[in-house]
Write a protein that binds this DNA or RNA. Structure first.
Lengths: 340, 340
DNA sequence: AAAATTCACGAAAACGTTATCGTAGTTTTT
DNA sequence: AAAAACTACGATAACGTTTTCGTGAATTTT
């Protein structure tokens, strides 16, 4: 069912039908009604490709992220989708799996005009941004969220990584930790850097000497990570507090403590960035810095749509920072009764 | 940059350039090489809309699911995307948020020819399937996964809900439970029914009388759910085992036990369907029936692509059942030492 | 009542591809 | 050497919209 057939049924021209459907003022109210009725009756749907081709608009955005089986990104997509649905846009998902080659290929794909805008959280391997500059050259709106690229002028939506990390570190200090370790996975990621800067700033502020050996950059190999953390928690210079800059490392630390029969929080206190719904039910419950993932997604999408809908395209270099919250639970606080 | 401009640069006709890019045998090797080189130089990308319009193929699939901030669906999408990327397809995500009205609207949207196929996990409210029949009428391939619709002939990929539930229930029985409760959220969902049937079958097989009051259908209201579970765990006929047919109810049960100062597994044993990565670190660690979510996604996508690529379209009513695994942890087993 | 507007519609040209068909020029067959 | 076949390309017609422009008829203005 297309315009041609619909027009035939109505004894009208294609153009009139098209205009009627788009509620043009050139068409009388009576014929509009007839057209609408017939279109509904025959279940007419505009062909999105013909329409996009003609209008040079896709009504689609792309979301490029490193992974999806992850609480943060799941919530973020939820936020993105909520805005997109509101605006009548479609959402394409592309996963890079932390592979810069895939990120390159995907940025190539979205340059075809397939999408009107791009939301992105970069790969940990992303060190240059020539592929992202291409998007800018092609005037395809781009907004970063969470994992942003420093090298490119584009709106960015993140959490207050620096301040949250200060809070997290000071929380450990207040609870008696003297040798606080910092765990990260991807040292060259901007969020990692900021989190580490916050950690170091908090130490300095509290007159604690930072120690090289307490800063551990982990890998994607869980076995290796366990060994690294194990090393951290044994020996004479062992840590009495862990600040995990990503969720999975907090969990990995739990595993190591169990193995080493270390008690949390008695022997070692743990805090981590996390969006785990079950943080409260861990053993012990995990103190977290929780990012407003849903809101980050919503905000990033909102900015993107502003960019898309703006006629004259101009790149606003906007940095939106949403607050994370520190939720204190049992993994960092010695309580008299340490029941459940 | 389009074919016309590219052709001009090369002093060739549009059709020749198009054929060269598609590696047609009508074009000589030398000109092909020239065209490819120039296309690369000028960063030419085919316009997807023009191409789709002409070829009547979108190279895109839609994934329609109730929610995304959920371990199961996150992993499933991961599996779907892995196949789609391999095949060079694009993935559109649509969330119904358990709202049948949205499901209706979305099935309408995907009928426009925007996608070549649809992967779907239905809403808990979906009781009729006229909107899904429309897809069939329009010959748009459709594959269900996890939450399937019984009323429509389409390939379905699920886990072995019935048998897994028997296993889960018998696991509780073996560990000494006499009054086993069954917790569900959406009673009219086929997976819920199957899980409940498995539960009942296991009871019957083991000569345990099923009790109406031990079968609890929860809601989306967490407060109410807590009350319902609380009722289940108090009084003289209280449960000593809980089989949660969905993850969130297992977690809710943990919350209630904490509130009521009930010890898991001493006072009550809990098992649940779950894809939690942190199940092992809960307090106590949670015994789970874990679905092969990634594989379910992969398998569903594979079947969909078979349907898409098949010339003459014919609906195979294929039921693929992947095995879930029961992972025994501390929430169901009394151990001498119940340390962490 | 003539002139100027407005109304309600149709014709036709894009948008950028792809695929069918036609055709010079060349090579192979009998 | 004539006929047949092949090679390598170009012209052109779709695919289904949207939008600009044109045009009779009806309406309003002077």
């Amino acid at each position: 069912m297309n315009l041609k057939q619909l027009a035939k049924e109505l004894n009208l021209s294609i153009s009139s039908v098209s205009k009627a459907l788009r509620d043009s003022h050139e068409i009388s109210a009576t014929t509009k009604a007839k057209v609408l009725a017939k279109a509904k009756e025959l279940n007419y749907q505009v062909n999105p490709f013909a329409s996009s081709l003609r209008k040079q608009k896709s009504k689609t955005i792309a979301v490029i992220i490193p992974e999806i089986a992850n609480n943060f990104f799941g919530l973020a997509i939820n936020g993105i989708e909520s805005i997109a649905q509101e605006k009548g846009y479609h959402v394409l998902i592309y996963l890079t799996h932390e592979d810069i080659q895939k990120e390159l290929a995907i940025t190539q794909i979205v340059q075809s005009g397939r999408v009107d805008g791009v939301l992105m959280s970069i790969t940990n391997q992303t060190d240059h941004s020539t592929h992202l500059d291409q998007l800018k050259d092609k005037q395809i709106p781009l907004v970063f969220f969470d994992r942003v690229s420093e090298n490119i002028d584009a709106p960015k939506v993140t959490t207050d990584d620096y301040n949250s990390s200060i809070k997290a570190t000071e929380h450990l200090i207040k609870n008696g930790c003297k040798r606080i370790a910092f765990l990260s996975i991807y040292p060259n990621l901007s969020i990692t850097k900021k989190r580490m800067e916050g950690y170091l700033a908090a130490l300095a502020k509290n007159d604690i000497q930072s120690t090289e050996s307490l800063i551990v950059h982990c890998t994607n190999d869980e076995e290796k990570n366990s060994l690294l953390i194990k090393k951290l928690l044994t020996g004479k210079n062992k840590a009495d507090g862990i600040f995990a800059s990503v969720e999975k490392l907090a969990i990995a630390s739990y595993g190591v403590c169990e193995e080493l029969k270390l008690s949390i929080p008695k022997n070692v206190k743990i805090i981590g960035f996390s969006n785990l719904q079950t943080a409260a039910f861990l053993n012990p419950s995990l103190t977290t810095i929780t990012q407003p993932a849903f809101e980050i997604g919503r905000e990033a999408a909102s900015i993107l749509f502003k960019l898309i809908e703006k006629k004259g395209y101009d790149y606003i270099v906007e940095k939106t920072i949403l607050e994370s919250v520190l939720i204190e639970r049992n993994s960092t606080v010695d309580r008299i009764k340490n029941v459940s």
